[in-house]
Write a protein that binds this DNA or RNA. Structure first.
Lengths: 222, 222
DNA sequence: GATTAAAATTGACACTGTCAAGTTGCAATG
DNA sequence: CATTGCAACTTGACAGTGTCAATTTTAATC
């Protein structure tokens, strides 16, 4: 009985394949990812990945899960930056997270597209390890926003509404305006200065959502 | 010189391929679309589409353009419905358009995903006909929203901000919550009733955006 | 050292998009 | 009407893709 999981040939192929995939997405774009390319980059034969991933969908999902770690970290970093500037009101915290959100979408635009592409991941067709990974890592991403939104609602229903509002706004913005070469969104007249900043967009929200004051400083987590 | 464009064998293959593509996306999902499947469904050989589309990207783009017509019509229909209920204030008009937006995303969920998937359409690699089509049809979609948003801003910059705000919000909502089987967005606890309606989300906007009253009835187009 | 099971390779298959060459059929020209 | 010309379409091939079955290699165990 092995106390440590020490695979035989490669060492840790599963990890290597995920990293190879991230690199391919980064350098060649979201549509360039291929099972065989990942295998080649990891230095194994084209059919080797089958022993670690149920299929290409599983590999893609695992890459997305890994992307979520960077994504969540980007939001946490922005939150920490805001805290260093003493911007700790719920409104300021949520705004900071959105800035981190958009920052990730711009800095890792190919990965962002890859992650939030509508993929038909029949969760049933994904191996248990990867399925757990995506659930955990994507959940942690959402948890960052969820925590910051918490003080903005009193009941669970209210909080769900606030979360949906912020999440929709920032995600839509990222999709439509986040990437300079985005082909979605409104047809832009080649004037990138006509794109408002995420903070300008967020300013159009009614921040005193449901009676509570979003500007009160301090940690109001119950 | 032919006064009417009457192609030789098929009659109108370009149109038939687009319709075949729409049907495939509808019935088999966004990822099921294939050049060869379209050709088969249109009753021609696998290489026939090459004479009408520069490549598969062009065909996809043409299908997206066609989808935009349905999309724009869905928003216009919702706007007409609102007018029948005498809901003609800017706020009510914009809300109605968003309802039409979400309605399209739900009714034609596969097509919506297909349309707003980040596709690398190197516009240079797309034949001129299709390129004009997508620009025109996507522009018309956006024009519906643009017109409704017009009274909500006074300067051009203000209007761009309002448009970006509304568009981001409704698009993000459609992506994250529009489709019941969406795998994006927050991990939902199998409680579909916890998803707020688009109208609830829009209610969190500060509708008196920039001093002007969004509730004033009538046609305030300048 | 022999056994055994996992890890990885090799080879094959159907399917994809794209290209080159050949065929068909319509339309304008003589 | 016969001929020419050209666009529409077909056929065949090619490199890649994901996936599967059969085989070999490797590492841990008895």
């Amino acid at each position: 009985m092995t106390q440590k999981k020490r695979p035989h040939h490669h060492g840790n192929l599963r990890e290597a394949l995920i990293l190879a995939g991230l690199e391919i997405v980064r350098s060649e774009g979201p549509d360039a990812l291929t099972l065989r390319k990942c295998a080649l980059r990891a230095g194994v034969s084209h059919a080797a990945p089958a022993h670690h991933f149920n299929g290409v969908t599983s590999l893609r999902t695992a890459i997305i899960a890994r992307g979520h770690r960077i994504f969540a970290q980007s939001m946490r970093d922005a939150l920490a930056d805001a805290a260093n500037r003493s911007a700790t009101s719920p409104k300021e915290q949520v705004t900071a997270i959105c800035v981190g959100y958009i920052n990730f979408a711009q800095t890792h635009s190919a990965l962002f597209k890859f992650m939030f592409q509508p993929h038909d991941q029949d969760f049933t067709k994904i191996d248990a390890v990867t399925s757990d990974e995506i659930r955990r890592d994507a959940g942690r991403s959402y948890e960052v926003l969820r925590t910051a939104c918490h003080p903005l609602g009193t009941t669970e229903k209210e909080r769900a509404q606030v979360e949906a509002t912020i999440w929709s706004m920032v995600h839509g913005y990222a999709m439509l305006f986040g990437d300079a070469n985005s082909n979605l969104g409104p047809p832009r007249p080649d004037r990138p200065e006509s794109i408002p900043a995420i903070t300008d967009v967020l300013a159009n929200l009614n921040w005193s959502f449901l009676g509570k004051n979003a500007d009160s400083k301090g940690n109001s987590q119950e």
